[in-house]
């Protein structure tokens, strides 16, 4: 279970404080996966980072009884001069039990399918290879909650399909806190939705309903003639 109380977060922007999240209070039960929906800049990623303990709120508390992942698929934590294997070993030393480190490495190696590149420096990888490695690494550890921010958009068709299957497998034992502009993906994995607007949060028991409302709001903001200019 995750219990959030009076959560407030602001950032300094051009000398002024901009409040992104304003006094949020909510609970996430132990068997719930949450779709976090909102326009660009609404604070979705900020909320995930606060829940993951990566960022610190200005005010408010977050209590969690389980383990929360780092943002799935993040590539920043990799050391470019180290090989894929060495990078995976590093994270496994932090999150895995000592006796399980080899298993974690094997899991990532099998998922990422990098072949000989697994033993070459990370900086030599293509963007697709980086995505495969980082996603595989995130999924190698059985967290209670996975923070998933826009991951389903990365990689080629095969990788996206493999990722989808792996996520569905993980869904059996874990929960997701998910941000994705691919709204269809949210419906598959989540059973409740938070709609973020103007620093506040509206909770929806039905993900589809939240998506419909969000889509309508976004489209309504488009003036009738403000679409793509017509070609000559």
């Amino acid at each position: 279970m995750i219990r959030v109380s009076s959560l407030t977060k602001s950032y300094l922007y051009k000398g002024k404080r901009k409040r992104v999240l304003d006094n949020l209070t909510f609970e996430i039960a132990g068997d719930e996966s949450i779709a976090v929906i909102g326009a660009n800049g609404a604070g979705k990623s900020t909320l995930l980072q606060l829940l993951g303990g990566i960022d610190i709120p200005d005010r408010g508390t977050i209590d969690c009884t389980g383990t929360i992942s780092w943002p799935v698929g993040i590539e920043g934590g990799f050391q470019g001069s180290l090989t894929g294997r060495e990078n995976v070993t590093f994270v496994s030393m932090i999150y895995g039990e000592k006796r399980e480190i080899d298993d974690r490495i094997k899991f990532v190696e099998d998922f990422a399918e990098l072949g000989i590149y697994f033993d070459r420096p990370f900086k030599t990888y293509s963007s697709g290879m980086k995505s495969r490695l980082s996603f595989g690494l995130s999924m190698a550890f059985p967290f209670d909650y996975y923070l998933i921010d826009e991951i389903t958009a990365a990689g080629d068709q095969k990788f996206r399909e493999k990722s989808k299957r792996l996520l569905l497998d993980r869904k059996k034992t874990s929960n997701f806190l998910m941000v994705d502009h691919n709204l269809w993906g949210l419906q598959i994995h989540c059973n409740r939705a938070f709609l973020l607007e103007s620093g506040g949060i509206t909770e929806y028991a039905n993900v589809k309903e939240a998506i419909d409302i969000h889509t309508k709001t976004l489209l309504a903001e488009l003036a009738p003639e403000s679409g793509v200019p017509h070609a000559a």
Binding site: E97, F107, P142, T173
Partner: peptide, 11 residues
């Protein structure tokens, strides 16, 4: 993956 079903231990 061996041990993948066990949850991460709180440390």
């Amino acid at each position: 993956m061996e041990g993948s079903d066990s949850r991460l231990r709180r440390l």
